[in-house]
């Protein structure tokens, strides 16, 4: 942008970047090195900045634990299916709201409200329902709930993206004989692809890391990764190695997803937040 940026200026910029990266990423670095430390090295004084030799023990323990593998599988499935469900319900609704103002601003407010409900409100009724209808410890139950909790934000973001598409493009397609669903599929979706990327990350963030519902509604079969990770915590004083390894393990897919769509992520929010 600034053509006159001198070499010194560049150096200053890079120095600032480096400073920012160190400050922001140090905790992440610490989490990662913790996962490669033996239990005895965890809280050593002075701290061990870089464990040499690094131990893979924590990861080996994780991957040889059938519970971890099972919950990893569950988490992947549940987050994936939730994403599809949110898309199937949310995109048509967002389209309808953006294009025809169905529901109006009232529905927008209702959608906000849905994000404000505190957990104490739903844990007991949900547990009762889940047990009563044989939905306890079933992955599908979590999918339905995560869909509900993710849907409002998804719709809200999608409405923003869809509003930016000029009516004329769709109208042209309609004249060519496409149905509404056809228009959504063939015209709208390709145009908001960057937006979809950022919605995807937001959705993954909320379902992948969720704990309160998962711990209430699952026991063995459908247990998700955060609940399994939580069981490393309170019972003994040596679990931080495995817990940090599990933390790294659980963050990896979402970080990779974030990096993959990084360009779209920024672009996507342009459409969503720009006037």
């Amino acid at each position: 942008m600034d053509r006159n940026t001198s070499r010194a200026n560049y150096l200053l910029t890079y120095a600032i970047w480096l400073f920012l990266l160190v400050v922001f990423l140090f905790p992440i670095y610490w989490l990662i090195v913790s996962s490669f430390k033996t239990e005895g090295q965890q809280f050593a004084i002075p701290p061990i900045w870089f464990p040499a030799p690094a131990t893979l023990e924590n990861y080996i323990n994780l991957f040889s634990d059938a519970k971890v593998i099972n919950s990893l599988k569950n988490s992947l499935l549940i987050a994936g299916i939730t994403l599809v469900a949110v898309a199937a319900l949310g995109i048509p609704a967002a389209y309808s709201m953006a294009r025809f103002r169905v529901g109006g601003s009232f529905m927008m407010l209702v959608i906000f409200t849905a994000r404000l409900l505190p957990p104490v409100a739903y844990i007991i009724p949900l547990f009762a329902i889940a047990r009563g209808f044989n939905l306890y410890d079933k992955g599908g139950t979590l999918v339905a709930l995560y869909t509900f909790f993710s849907l409002p934000l998804a719709i809200w973001m999608l409405v923003g993206f869809i509003s930016t598409i000029p009516d004329e493009i769709e109208d042209a397609a309609m004249i060519d004989g496409a149905s509404r669903l056809g228009v959504i599929w063939h015209v709208v979706l390709p145009l908001i692809r960057p937006g979809l990327a950022s919605v995807t990350i937001f959705m993954l963030l909320s379902s992948w890391n969720e704990f309160a519902l998962a711990v209430t509604l699952t026991a063995r079969h459908a247990r998700t990764l955060p609940v399994t990770m939580y069981t490393f915590v309170t019972n003994q004083n040596i679990a931080w190695g495995e817990l940090s390894a599990a933390g790294v393990l659980s963050a990896t897919p979402i970080v990779i997803a974030g990096l993959l769509v990084q360009k779209h992520l920024v672009m996507g929010l342009v459409a969503g937040s720009g006037k």
Binding site: M1, D2, T5, Y10, T13, Y14, W17, L20, L21, F24, L25, P27, I28, W30, L31, S34, L205, W208, N209, F211, P226, M229, Y230, V233, W240, L243, S244, A246, G247, S250, A251, I254, V255, G258, L259, Q262, K263, L265, V266
Partner: peptide
């Protein structure tokens, strides 16, 4: 946002704290 080389990478790396499960970060801190 100054179109300097490497900007995108820095921005991406800065996203990581946001992507880690809050309860892991809680224990970490």
């Amino acid at each position: 946002n100054r179109n300097i080389r490497g900007e995108g990478l820095v921005r991406t790396l800065l996203l990581i704290p946001w992507l880690v499960a809050p309860f892991i970060s809680g224990f970490n801190f």
